[in-house]
């Protein structure tokens, strides 16, 4: 294979791990975002507080610090060693989920009040209104910012290389040590991450188009 393509096979294992972490992290992030975003709007003050604290803590501390804390400090508290991959998925999910929660909350709040009133006038209860009227409309508003967050998550997966996971980035560092082709290796890493980001963007665009047919956002008031 011509250089720099010949570097690719040695990066494949790392790429696979990066993809696993990104996928697992995304699923967790979306789940946490929905839970905490809805939690912020709960009528129960305890639920609201828990959601708020989670969001502030994970948005307020650095993702890398969180990784270190979960990987090095938490095992001391728990008395057991945690798998580095698992910590990566969990921390990235929690971190991006906290940002996603704000997206969920503000999307729900920006569904016009008239929609909730109309649902109430049709005797729907809070849960039915949320499930059938508010969420389907809010999800459309969430998609673009969520797309950005998933790209942030993909980029953050590189951080797991610092807690011993041989992801794409760490595989690149090893490969550089082996080959000393520094510019090529790091250039290749950047290109791979860039392509993955483009893929996320494309998928989100498609999803948006698929979900948005026939909608108008123009609900007055």
């Amino acid at each position: 294979m011509p250089p720099p393509i010949d570097l690719l096979p040695s990066l494949m294992d790392g790429l696979r791990r990066t993809l696993v972490i990104a996928a697992g992290g995304s699923v967790l992030a979306i789940a946490f975002a929905l839970l905490a975003g809805l939690g912020c709007l709960s009528r129960d003050p305890i639920v609201r507080t828990v959601a708020r604290v989670y969001i502030e803590v994970f948005r307020g501390t650095s993702a890398l610090v969180q990784l270190f804390w979960f990987y090095f400090a938490l095992p001391i508290l728990l008395g057991l060693r945690l798998d580095a991959m698992l910590v990566g998925v969990l921390v990235l999910g929690l971190n991006i989920g906290a940002y996603g929660a704000e997206v969920v909350r503000s999307a729900i709040e920006s569904v016009p009040a008239g929609q909730v009133q109309a649902a109430a006038a049709l005797s729907m209860n809070r849960w039915q209104t949320m499930r059938y009227i508010v969420l389907p409309q809010a999800i459309l508003l969430m998609l673009p910012p969520f797309g950005n967050l998933l790209i942030e998550l993909l980029k953050s997966t590189a951080l797991v290389s610092m807690i011993t996971v041989t992801d794409l980035t760490r595989a690149g560092l090893f490969l550089r040590d082996d080959t000393l082709r520094t510019a090529e290796v790091f250039g290749m890493l950047l290109l791979i991450y860039f392509s993955l980001s483009l893929m996320i963007t494309a998928v989100m665009r498609g999803l948006e188009r698929w979900l948005s047919h026939g909608q108008d956002y123009g609900g007055r008031q």
Partner: peptide, 21 residues
Amino acid sequence: EFVRSTPLLVQIFFLFYVLPS
């Protein structure tokens, strides 16, 4: 677009290790 779509960590490595060459 490129810089926004790629990890800061790899960019840091790139600058630190590639510029000397």
